[in-house]
Write a protein that binds this DNA or RNA. Structure first.
Ligand SMILES: [Zn+2]
Ligand SMILES: [Zn+2]
Ligand SMILES: [Zn+2]
Ligand SMILES: [Zn+2]
Lengths: 168, 168
DNA sequence: TCCATATTGTTATCTTATAACATATCACTT
DNA sequence: AAGTGATATGTTATAAGATAACAATATGGA
């Protein structure tokens, strides 16, 4: 599994590699884990991989509908549940939206704890690791006797490209 | 403004002080800021201060209704908007719920950046400062050229009291 | 008192998400 | 190849969370 250098998605980059790499990784993961990347699931992942923008479930559903792949909410929510559980997609709590994981072949692999940087203007989402922050977080929790099961860390602001303009 | 020692709300404590202190602080804040703590707003804050549990907007609305203070969603959402904006209440993104700020007279004062520890079992929410974590977070953002406007940091897990049982 | 502003009341609607159950598909055994 | 249990999808209905829009009222200063 080739370890790619971490891409800063806010910079110009070969996005076709994000898309292809993401799909390849997903197929490989499902292969090894005995999971089924069915047509709807694959298409939802593909839709999310087509940009680094957060999409709402109903945005995705509208596209599925155009593709003739279903128009009822459970279709998209079930696919998203599968993708989130297998770590291929992340849910953004602040936006009630979803974005494809873009840690392809990262050393950390799936199941990492991500931190998100969410641009309020263009809805692009960058994903970085919580590794560096995790230590101090854990210390706070320990001080209160709290047992951490999962973490939500989302930074809201403006990406480099959106900083020039009028501002939100 | 008396600086109280930070309370660990997961430990047994004199909760009446949380309630009274919270209301007193709110009145003082509104006084100095020229804000109006109207009956509905005060009641919503009081409802939230009565426990350290996160409450959904409709939970609060049901109580307001019993009090004869309104039964339409905008009533509670408008009060919550006011309270969140003035820093008296925080919104928990992971839960789509709200909890009173319990940093009464803290050195940091209002407008601090909070981090939350949310018990999935009893829905109690402890609030600590993001201060210690903020540095490393900011560094990640700077590395990507991202301009941070606000932060969502929520730790999901189990409080000390809920750790004994069967587990969620 | 009169006015501008802020707040509340009310109706309707929108967005996000899930429950429940019928049908179809898959993977595996016989 | 046919049977079988588990998994996945189709479909209807509804729950849960949030806001738009406008009318009515209260507040506080000129
Ligand atoms: Zn890309
Ligand atoms: Zn942007
Ligand atoms: Zn208390
Ligand atoms: Zn608890």
């Amino acid at each position: 599994m080739p370890v790619q250098p971490a891409t800063n998605i806010f910079e110009k980059h070969n996005h076709r590699r994000c898309l292809k790499g993401g799909m390849d990784e997903a197929r490989a993961l499902c292969q090894t884990q005995g999971l089924r990347l069915t047509p709807v699931r694959a298409r939802v992942l593909e839709i999310l991989l087509e940009s680094h923008k957060a999409l709402g479930a109903y945005d995705i559903l509208a596209i599925l509908d155009m593709d003739g792949m279903g128009r009822q909410p459970p279709v998209v929510y079930r696919a998203l549940e599968f993708l989130v559980q297998s770590g291929l997609v992340h849910r953004l709590e602040k936006l009630n939206a979803f974005a494809a994981c873009c840690h392809q072949g990262s050393a950390e692999g799936r199941g990492h704890e991500p931190m998100f940087l969410i641009c309020t203007q263009c809805r692009q989402v960058a994903e970085t690791s919580l590794k560096e922050v995790e230590g101090s977080i854990e210390k706070c929790a320990a001080a209160l006797g709290f047992e951490v099961q999962s973490r939500v860390v989302e930074l809201i602001g403006r990406c480099p490209a959106c900083q020039g303009g009028a501002g939100l």
